[in-house]
Design a protein around this nucleic acid. Structure first.
Length: 912
RNA sequence: GGGCGGUUAGCUCAGAUGGUUAGAGCGCAUGCUUGACAUGCAUGAGGUCAGAGGUUCAAGUCCUCUACCGCCCACCA
């Protein structure tokens, strides 16, 4: 697309109503096919390196929340910026099947219908899940469009699609062949509510006050092997029901109290099992009684102890956390009912010694909040040690950078202390583990879609093999996301061209869940770091700092916000004032700020359009004004635009997006609207300016606005696109801003900036004096001005503007301060605006004005003297003068001279 | 028990490599129907940068300690 069309700039309605145009603009982008790196509307330079962001796939469980809106906004920002730089840019959309989260949601829905997993059975349950997902998918994709995410919809992926299935099977098979996936019976975390094992990360240690019960185990008579009434050992436990699985009692080897008991045996009550008292350094003699009951099948510590001492492992829990047959008389009871029953029974026997309240951490399921039970189970694990090494190397070497950098410490710590990853889940919605077992216990793992043809070990035919009923942890397929989405394991063109990806943006809360896994699996399977930069966003919180959640009722629906304020306002709100990795309290006020900013820009554009000089036709092609027709205000504006562009470039390079919006807000509102447009109004309406000069003024306004729209587009794409369409464009411009070029940095003009800002300072000074003296804001004031050498031409050029902005007429210019002194009359006001000095004549001469003037000058004098004293003290310090760098010292001297001059001038006025 | 972050205006937050007088928005005060905008304009008030030491010519910024708040990791039954 070359932009040679003769488009007449469109209209800009009087009122900014984002709902009127945002949807239409998104449709235009899609229709023009600008989001695909190779789309027909793309203006990308194929020679430039591609820029790739694979979207973190939101869970397909219902709807997007504000956190998603923020993520999408940040991702879209970097993507749109790269696209405007002309890089082939891929922003790939996706959805995550979120197995456990999705089952949790569906189970609740089913419960409302009187159904359950059990009543439906696997096949019908999965059917229901596919129906559910088919319902939520379009809702979620629609939400992404509303936010304005410039995703390449032709590449939409799902973690349960065929491509992901192939990748999952292939990845697992390769890990298995490399000895990095293994199956073993081990202690895992079991969530009775979800009826599945969960990983370490999904167990949330939750503080609770429970009880520490002390229980008496009777020693056995060494002769008869029968329990002795008078000899015992007291053990402490917080989970009495685990007594049923005890297979030893342990004491510390150096504990004198128990030295004689090591090697003796005790009888475990109820199950009537005789176990040995062992010595192990894991026991803390200072805690409880110093003796610990050992339940190797239901406690991580005890499991390790059991391994060391070759103890028996007795599993006493069923999947639903009821006591199983091993629990003898308590079989069938729920774990907590069993606990009470056991305590009652112990009390009856006289073996319950004490019960004291005890603060402890209880592991709860991240998803269901149920208390998780450690339990023995045969599962698949990923051996992460070697993978973690490579992930660490990626960040240590700088090949992958984490922003903000402080998270690299957590990354280091987690990856160096990582345990093997349990990937088996006893759920239904997910990728089934591609492992088949033969009656002889052999294992066959294959990536083949139809499964193995025969047992790898003994050759038994496929018909005799049974596939593992478990599925993978949802994060296993997510971990392949950066490359499974590009076609891996096939050697596709996409993979060659777009992998490794550029930026991975996500919340810091899933750094380990997801980013670390992608890094480990990516390095192992593709031999490349899957991304160059990890950008971690903070979490969105409510105005009180709480995490947003539907159950708390404090969550905000992004669509409602967009309906009311527009997507641009929301995008601005979640980016402005944020820093990487820091949480954001999102309030209505913040979104209003974004909406107001968009409205301001809208109205500024309306003004510019309406201010077009008659000499310029409505459908004129963009022109660059001649330098000779520019006045100081125009040179100042062009210089400020250049400075803003440079600052915006730097902010984006630093991933400092909060800084980016601050810079643009300031430039557009405070400089462009408050000053540039006000100065331009005067020149455009002046009888003295030539048509060429007026045209130059207008083109300068258009040029500046055009640049600001480009700079702001990645943050607020809709309003900038809408306004841009209403402005004249250059022949080289495309039709849509979304694929227009990012601005280059123009030339600065330090003199123009200095001089115009001095004159603007004079305006502010006069306004200030007027307000303080309580003069009627409407009345014209007579102002006499003394200027420093060199400021004359700029002052003359801007004189009409000053007269209008400060309501100062006549505005007389006297070259010397002496001449100015002569203009002073009783009751007049003195204004010191940097290098400019002015005398404002009071419209009415009275004592009140004089008093106000005197108070004001005295206050200014005190302040100036204080600053001067500080400046002098600094320069009087030899150490400063000799050690500080030359420019700093020179600056300090200039500062001192300026302050001294100011003090002298104020004194002069006060005394005169 | 380790580790990390936060503490800056009434509120929410910015403050690259230490360097003139620490900024913004909201809120507050006063005044404005100035021909783009009351979703606005003008002017102003408001901060011993959590506390205590230290390094330095110079500290909101670097170091140490302390106090609150929050987070991550961790096998005390």
């Amino acid at each position: 697309m070359t932009g040679t069309t003769e488009t007449t700039p469109g209209e800009l309605p009087k009122t900014y109503r984002p709902a009127d145009f945002e949807g239409a603009i998104y449709e235009r982008w899609v229709t023009a096919d600008v989001f695909a790196p190779d789309g027909t509307g793309s203006t990308a330079d194929p020679e430039l390196p591609p820029f790739v962001v694979i979207q973190p796939p939101p869970n397909i469980t219902g709807s997007l929340h504000l956190g998603h809106a923020q993520r999408s906004s940040v991702e879209d920002l970097v993507v749109r910026h790269a696209r405007m730089l002309g890089r082939p840019t891929l922003f790939l959309p996706g959805l995550d099947h979120a197995s456990i989260a999705a089952q949790f949601v569906l189970d609740r829905i089913l419960a409302g219908e009187g159904e359950s997993r059990a009543t439906l059975g696997r096949e019908r349950y999965l059917e229901r899940m596919r129906e559910f997902v088919d319902q939520t998918r379009p809702i979620m994709l629609g939400q992404q469009r509303r936010v304005g995410a410039s995703l390449d919809w032709s590449r939409l992926r799902f973690t349960m699609d065929e491509g992901s299935a192939v990748a999952v099977r292939e990845a697992f098979t390769r890990l298995y062949r490399a000895g990095l996936a293994y199956r073993t019976e081990a202690l895992i975390h079991w969530c009775p509510g979800c009826r599945t094992s969960v990983s370490d990360l999904e167990v949330i240690p939750t503080p609770e006050v429970g009880n520490l019960w002390t229980i008496r185990y009777h020693l056995l008579d060494e002769e008869t092997g029968e329990p002795l009434e008078g000899e015992w050992i007291d053990v402490a436990t917080t989970r009495p029901e685990t007594i049923l699985g005890d297979t030893a009692v342990a004491v510390h080897p150096d504990d004198a109290r128990y030295r004689g008991l090591v090697g003796r045996r005790v009888r475990i009550p109820f199950v009537e099992r005789d176990v040995e008292i062992i010595a192990d350094a894991v026991v803390d003699p200072a805690f409880g009684t110093g003796a610990v009951k050992i339940t190797p099948a239901h406690d991580a510590d005890d499991y390790a102890t059991g391994r060391r001492h070759g103890l028996a492992f007795v599993n006493v829990l069923d999947d639903d956390a009821t006591i199983n047959a091993a629990g003898d008389g308590f079989a069938g009871l729920d774990r907590y009912d069993a606990r009470r029953a056991i305590l009652d029974a112990l009390e009856t026997r006289g073996d319950l010694v004490s019960a004291v309240p005890h603060e402890m951490l209880v592991g709860r399921c991240d998803r269901s909040n149920d208390v998780v039970e450690p339990r023995l189970k045969t599962q698949w694990f990923i051996r992460v040690g070697p993978l973690a090494e490579r992930a660490l190397d990626a960040t240590r070497s700088g090949r992958t950078r984490i922003i903000p950098g402080r998270f690299e410490k957590e990354w280091e710590h987690w990856l160096t202390n990582i345990h093997d990853w349990n990937v088996s889940r006893q759920l239904w919605w997910g990728h089934r583990i591609p492992a088949w077992y033969c009656p002889d216990g052999h294992v066959t793992v294959t990536a083949a879609a139809d499964g193995p043809t025969a047992c790898e070990a003994c050759g038994r035919p496929a018909t005799e093999l049974v596939q593992d009923t478990d599925i993978f942890d949802t994060w296993f397929s997510s971990g392949l996301w950066p490359f499974s989405t590009l076609g891996w394991p096939a050697d596709t063109e996409d993979l060659r061209r777009y992998y490794p990806t550029s930026v991975m943006e996500t919340g810091y809360d899933i750094l380990f869940f997801w980013v670390a896994r992608m890094m480990m699996l990516g390095l192992q399977l593709t031999d490349r770091e899957p991304f160059r930069t990890v950008y971690l966003s903070g979490l969105i919180r409510d105005p009180l700092g709480r995490k947003m959640s539907k159950t708390k009722g404090n969550s905000v629906d992004p669509l409602e916000t967009i309906d009311e304020f527009g997507a641009d306002a929301l995008r601005f709100a979640v980016i402005d004032g944020t820093t990487a990795g820091n949480d954001l309290r999102l309030s209505r006020e913040k979104i209003e700020k974004g909406r107001n900013f968009a409205n301001k820009l809208w109205n500024a554009a309306r003004f510019v359009r309406g201010a077009r000089p008659v000499s310029i036709p409505a459908d004129a092609r963009r022109e660059s004004p001649l330098a000779s027709d520019l006045g100081p205000a125009e040179r100042w504006l062009r210089s400020r635009v250049a400075a803003t562009t440079a600052a915006a470039d730097r902010a984006i390079a630093d991933f400092a997006f909060g800084e980016l919006t601050r810079i643009l807000y300031e430039a557009i509102w405070s400089e462009y609207c408050d000053s540039a447009l006000e100065l331009a109004k005067v020149r455009l309406g002046s009888d003295d300016a030539t048509p060429a000069e007026k045209a130059a003024t207008w083109w300068t306004l258009v040029e500046a606005l055009d640049t600001y729209l480009r700079l702001l587009h990645p943050v607020m794409p809709f309003v900038t696109e809408a306004i841009w369409a209403s402005l004249p464009h250059a022949a080289s411009d495309p039709e849509l801003l979304v694929v227009a070029r990012w601005p280059g940095v123009g030339e600065g003009d330090a003199a123009a900036e200095r001089e115009v800002e001095a004159v603007l300072g004079l305006v502010r000074g006069i306004r200030n004096a007027r307000t303080e003296a309580g003069f009627d804001p409407r009345v014209q004031l007579r102002v006499d001005v003394a200027l420093p050498v060199g400021l004359g031409p700029t002052f003359e050029a801007l004189r009409p503007a000053v007269e209008r902005l400060a309501r100062a007429r006549p505005l007389e210019r006297r070259l010397t301060r002496e001449a100015l002194g002569a203009a002073r009359a009783p009751g007049s006001l003195t204004v010191l605006a940097g290098p400019i000095e002015a005398v404002v004549s009071a419209p009415t001469l009275d004592g009140g004005t004089a008093r106000v003037e005197r108070t004001r000058l005295e206050r200014e004098l005190a302040e100036a003297e204080r600053l001067l004293a500080t400046a002098r003290a600094r320069l009087a310090n030899d150490a400063f003068v000799s050690k500080a760098p030359e420019p700093i010292v020179a600056g300090a001297r200039a500062r001192e001279a300026e302050l001294a001059d100011q003090v002298a001038r104020i004194r002069d006025r006060l005394e005169g």
